[in-house]
């Protein structure tokens, strides 16, 4: 009698324990990643993606049709809230005129169409994921689009040796925030598909702050005295791609742009 009672108790305890253990792991879902790296910094490693319409236009915009009627609804622009603090990009008048020309000619002028490296900050909010690999002393950001990447130097700041598409990045920690100072850009990249652009005087200061395990707050302050009347700022959340099998899949778009870029140089078999 006594024995049976204690067996029952043990069973009860086991069942209770099991259900607690189950609910704990159910709540966790995927295994919890360490929130900090070995050197005690916030761990930003992971695959991230923006979920907004900044890539179509950084400013507030209505939905609009494609320039190519053949693409129907597929090529149309979704409307959406802008990500520019204060609403408008403070262009100098002559730069605003150029922005409008860019927009009108975007099908042939947008560097994205030609599969050029997207530059910073555009690479961050394209409709493609990117991956942060936070190694000791260096942080890699690899973008799915065009195999673009950049390494953020976390050591003694270095000067940009030459102008490049993705810039020269020096990073440092300010408490919980990764601050990345980017210089050494060429004037070849745009900010979005709406023709927003910059000169080679571009200076971008980014701030990455984990809001929680799966949300990364992103801010970029953009300075370019040749193009804008004052520095301006964009901000948006980035979302962790939480799928267990999430990975970047090469998007080597060069071959998708060759007919556009070199089609006029193809041999004409009729001649």
């Amino acid at each position: 009698m006594k024995q049976r009672f204690s067996v029952t108790l043990a069973l009860l305890a086991a069942v209770t324990f099991a259900s607690i253990a189950n609910s704990a792991s159910a709540q966790r879902g995927a295994p919890v990643r360490p929130a900090r790296t070995a050197d005690g910094k916030p761990n930003l490693s992971g695959i991230w993606q923006a979920m907004n319409t900044a890539h179509w236009d950084l400013e507030d915009h209505s939905a609009s049709p494609s320039q190519l009627y053949q693409t129907g609804a597929v090529g149309a622009t979704p409307g959406g809230q802008g990500v520019v603090e204060g609403g408008e990009i403070p262009y100098k008048p002559e730069a605003l005129a150029r922005k409008k020309l860019n927009f009108a000619g975007r099908l042939s002028l947008d560097p994205e169409v030609k599969c050029y490296m997207p530059g910073i900050p555009r690479a961050t909010y394209m409709p493609f994921p990117f991956q942060i690999v936070q190694a000791p002393g260096m942080i890699l950001m690899a973008y799915e689009f065009a195999s673009a990447d950049r390494v953020i130097n976390m050591g003694k700041p270095v000067e940009a040796a030459v102008d490049t598409w993705m810039g020269t990045a020096n990073g440092r920690w300010d408490g919980e925030t990764l601050i990345v100072d980017n210089t050494g850009f060429n004037d070849g990249t745009w900010f979005d598909r709406a023709g927003n652009f910059h000169s080679d005087q571009l200076h971008v200061v980014e701030r990455f702050t984990l809001a929680d395990q799966d949300h990364l707050l992103y801010e970029a302050t953009i300075e370019d005295p040749q193009t804008f009347t004052r520095p301006w700022k964009i901000s948006m959340p980035l979302y962790r791609r939480v799928e267990k099998n999430a990975q970047l899949v090469d998007f080597k778009c060069v071959e998708y742009a060759e007919e556009l870029l070199y089609g006029h140089l193809r041999k004409d078999p009729s001649k």
Partner: peptide, 30 residues
Amino acid sequence: QILQTPDYVAIRYEMIHETRIIPLDGRAHA
């Protein structure tokens, strides 16, 4: 360049700009 975290090894190739990010968590191939 080779970079490491506990979960990934990344290899960067200058020519003609390639980045491989290799998971170490034993997941199946795509």
